[in-house]
Amino acid sequence: MPDGVSSLPVDRELRRVLRHGTFAQVLDHALSARGLSLERVQFHLAGHGVRVSRAALSYWRHGRSRPERAESLRAVRALEAVLDLPAESLVSLLGPPRPRGRLKAGPDAIDRRLLWPAHRPLLAAVNAPQDDRVRLLDVHEHVLVGDDRGLVSMRSRLVLEAAAERVDRYLVFLWAEGSTAAVPVDPKYCRLGRVRVDDSAGATVCELLLEQRLAAGERTVVEFSSEFPPGHELTFFHHRFTRPIRQYVLQVEFAGAVPVGCVPFRQANVHAPRHLGAPLWIGASRTAHLVVTDSPPGITGLLWEWD
C-alpha cells in the first residue's frame, strides 16, 4: 500500500459493484471512495514502475476504452494494489480481449475499404494500421474552386485523438475526379511519411507522421494542403467519415463565377442516395460555409449547380 494512503473500507457498495458491476464502475467507485485524483493515481503507479497517461485512466474510469495490452494489464494489477482492492478483482472484470482482425462495419463505424473502394490497393501497399487506433474529432477544410470551375487546392486541419497506446501516425485519403492524383504538401505539426498514388483513379493514400507518440486519450492537431492538377468542372465536394465526427467545417471559395445554387448533402455510403439540405447563401466572400456537428459516419459535403 502506498505511503500516505489509508486502507479502503470494504463497504457494502464496494462489495456490490465487485460482484455485479463493470470494470469502469468498480474503478470509479474505488477512486471516489479513496478521494484520489488521477494525478495522485499516476504518482502511486509510478512507484510500482508503471506509467499510464491521465487521459487513459479517465477513459478506463468512464468506460470509453478498456485496457487490453500486456503493459495495460500490468497497470491494472498495480491499480489493484494502489486502491487496496483484492488481487485480480479488476483484471477479472475485463473479460476476454476484443478481436483485433480487420475492422468490420458496425452501427458506429464503416469499413474504410467500403468508403474508399478505389484506395484498396494503396492501403495494402502501405500495410495500413487498423482504422480504429485514431479518432477524428474535428475537421476544418477550405477548398478553392478556380476560374475554370475546377478544384485548385484544399487546406485541411484535423483534430485527432488516440484510441490506443503508442499512436504515431494518421492516414489521409485524397481523391480527384477526372485528374491525376494529388499529394499533400506543407504539413504542419507532422511530417509526410509513405505516399502511394494511383493516377488512373485519382487516388492518394498518405501517412502523416505525428510530432510525438500519443498515449490513449491524448490529442493533437495536424494540418496540410493539397494542390490538384486541372480536371473536370467541379460540382460537389465531400468528406468521407468512417466514424462519428464531432464537428466538420467545410468552406468552399469560388475564385471565378459563383454557382446559382448550393446545398449540403449527406450519403450513408458511396452507393446510397444523396439527402439534400436547405440551400446555403453565398455572400460577398464568394464562399459557401457548411458546419456540421455530431454527425454519424458516412459522406457529408456540398453540392452546387453552375448557370
Rank of each mutant, 00 (worst) to 15 (best):
residue 156 S to F: 02
residue 149 R to N: 07
residue 270 V to K: 03
residue 183 V to L: 01
residue 174 L to T: 01
residue 264 P to N: 14
residue 227 E to K: 08
residue 152 V to E: 13
residue 288 A to I: 03
residue 159 V to K: 08
residue 142 H to N: 05
residue 269 N to R: 08
residue 180 T to M: 10
residue 270 V to G: 00
residue 244 P to C: 02
residue 143 V to Q: 07
residue 252 V to D: 07
residue 257 A to S: 13
residue 256 G to A: 06
residue 287 T to H: 12
residue 283 G to V: 01
residue 203 A to I: 01
residue 236 F to I: 05
residue 149 R to W: 01
residue 179 S to A: 15
residue 200 S to D: 15
residue 156 S to H: 08
residue 288 A to F: 05
residue 221 V to H: 02
residue 211 E to W: 02
residue 269 N to Y: 01
residue 270 V to N: 07
residue 242 T to A: 15
residue 162 A to C: 10
residue 194 R to T: 15
residue 254 F to L: 13
residue 212 Q to C: 06
residue 256 G to F: 01
residue 203 A to K: 04
residue 195 V to A: 03
residue 214 L to A: 15
residue 152 V to D: 13
residue 221 V to E: 03
residue 248 Y to G: 08
residue 236 F to W: 06
residue 204 T to E: 02
residue 153 S to E: 14
residue 173 F to Y: 13
residue 258 V to E: 11
residue 155 R to N: 00
residue 155 R to P: 02
residue 287 T to C: 14
residue 208 L to T: 05
residue 216 A to C: 14
residue 223 E to S: 13
residue 200 S to K: 15
residue 190 C to A: 15
residue 285 S to A: 15
residue 236 F to R: 09
residue 162 A to P: 13
residue 192 L to Q: 11
residue 221 V to P: 07
residue 147 D to W: 01
residue 176 A to E: 07
residue 216 A to F: 07
residue 237 F to V: 06
residue 164 A to Y: 03
residue 268 A to F: 05
residue 157 R to P: 06
residue 190 C to L: 01
residue 198 D to T: 11
residue 153 S to Q: 11
residue 203 A to C: 00
residue 167 V to Y: 04
residue 147 D to N: 01
residue 257 A to V: 05
residue 243 R to Y: 09
residue 224 F to E: 11
residue 230 P to W: 03
residue 196 R to D: 13
residue 144 L to Y: 08
residue 257 A to W: 02
